[in-house]
Write a protein that binds this DNA or RNA. Structure first.
Lengths: 113, 113
DNA sequence: CTTATTGTTTTGCAACCATCGAACATTAGA
DNA sequence: TCTAATGTTCGATGGTTGCAAAACAATAAG
């Protein structure tokens, strides 16, 4: 991966709100089974994370519920995270399914070796 | 470490020039002995990395030599990296000694677990 | 003391970013 | 078909960033 690409990823994570959004998805999507998700990254409704086919359902709605930002702003943040290659989202009917690209996370860790 | 702190670190690494500066220091300072530093992070003079008491000497000058940025800009970038806690710098006479805070790098990797 | 080297600080500017509200698009259900 | 819910896109705005040039400060060397 090129240096500019790493910079892009770090930029996506450089905004606190966006970082929180990413971590919410990451922790609720990739955390090993049974692991407790850090309190600050838990969804408001306290429901167990809902992973179907590796994707997190209703990520957008759930995140809107626990953050004090407008929908449009959250939409932008999602777009940035996708743009940096950190997450992938798709719609299925009315629900929004979202997953973290774990290989990218691996690459970041490798980069810092 | 607080979320805002991680965001701050990622912000420091979100600019490509600054990321390059960081990696040059990191690779020439922390890379295990004998390991080849990636070509893009090698100093221009090809001299072996010069680690004294764990610090990299003349980091500023060496980096000025291989980057196409003004001194003032590079000075700013150093300041940002220090500000984020990624590196620590001190002067000794006319030389500038610089080291990476490896524990911070560790914390980033832990964060992405 | 004078000069060259090494870095810092200040200033100014253009580009970019984060945010919101409003208008819009799509889907589901009544 | 009408309405509610879920996201997206657009336009505006205040704040931040990246950069260079110039002035400055500190140190070393002649």
């Amino acid at each position: 991966m090129k240096l500019s690409n790493y910079a892009k990823i770090f930029k996506a994570l450089s905004n606190e709100q966006r970082l929180k959004i990413f971590m919410m998805i990451y922790k609720n999507c990739c955390a090993p089974k049974g692991s407790k998700v850090g309190a600050e990254f838990r969804f408001k409704d306290e429901s167990p994370s809902c992973c179907v086919k590796g994707g997190l359902e209703k990520a957008f709605t759930k995140i809107c519920d626990c953050m004090d930002l407008s929908r449009s702003t959250i939409s932008h943040h999602f777009k940035e995270l996708q743009n940096a290659g950190l997450i992938t989202c798709k719609r299925e009917g009315q629900t929004y399914i979202c997953m973290v690209n774990e290989d990218v996370v691996e690459e970041i860790k490798d980069f810092l070796k």
